[in-house]
Design a binder for these strands. Sequence first.
DNA 1: TATTGTTATACTCTATAACTATA
DNA 2: TATAGTTATAGAGTATAACAATA
Lengths: 146, 146
Amino acid sequence: MTGQRHDLGATFVRLGRAMVAAEQPVLDELGIEMWDYVVLVALRDGPVHTQARLAAATGRDTTRLIPILDRLEGRGLLYRTPDPADRRNRIVELTAEGAELVTAGQAAIRRMEARLLAGLPEDERAGFISTLERVADLIAGPRDRL
Amino acid sequence: MTGQRHDLGATFVRLGRAMVAAEQPVLDELGIEMWDYVVLVALRDGPVHTQARLAAATGRDTTRLIPILDRLEGRGLLYRTPDPADRRNRIVELTAEGAELVTAGQAAIRRMEARLLAGLPEDERAGFISTLERVADLIAGPRDRL
DNA sequence: TATTGTTATACTCTATAACTATA
DNA sequence: TATAGTTATAGAGTATAACAATA
């Protein structure tokens, strides 16, 4: 019996899939898809001046990002304007409605996470989450900040 | 600034992708693909009497499993025999060579994991991994054992 | 008739390559 | 000429449906 524990990769992938599934009903309630949410969260802290940077920060490539932006812009959750400094670039920014939605969405997802982890003792839970963030930086590199 | 930390889903997915990428060179060295490895690991602890159960345990569906089994059988790493008790079923079992390869592969992957986590203090690392296993069972349910 | 394994078809998602506009 | 954004095409990956063998 070699494996007292499972491979980290298998465990992380499995956990990722389970969390995406758990987020689905929350996102359904908000009427947005997962990648919509990812983009909205990435934009929450301020406008971005090139879509390429936004694509890198969200792990999509630029071509896959475009339909997402089209949909969100059509719903009035964000808007794109040409950058006056270089009109090839587009400044992407949340509308007030978009900012409101991402705040409400993330709060709902945090509540869902808390429910899932309710079985863990409080101190173990806190320690796990803080180490998890460090491990993520260690293994996957620091996240692109916009 | 709402997010002192990132959503768990985003973090797990990112970590999963990073670990899969980190495993790639190890698997290349062994001459197998990721799903080959997943199947070999699942079979390590004993034969399975229906491919449907193997598919469920590895997260593939039966149709996607078949080309994987074909390839591994062709390389002599496992074999399929009709179940005498119910000849519709196929018993899938590792060959000696397959068992050897999965043992060597997992050892190499563990060494890779240890290198990636070398930046963590030993006790924090141990605590994290043990809590991670509990969290995985909590969130994704106990894993199908063959 | 129902189920296992298999094969074939359709669909979705992703990646690559052209096209437009600005520089 | 080079780059940002966009659109169109091709490819890989996945899911659905039909088929053969056995029960």
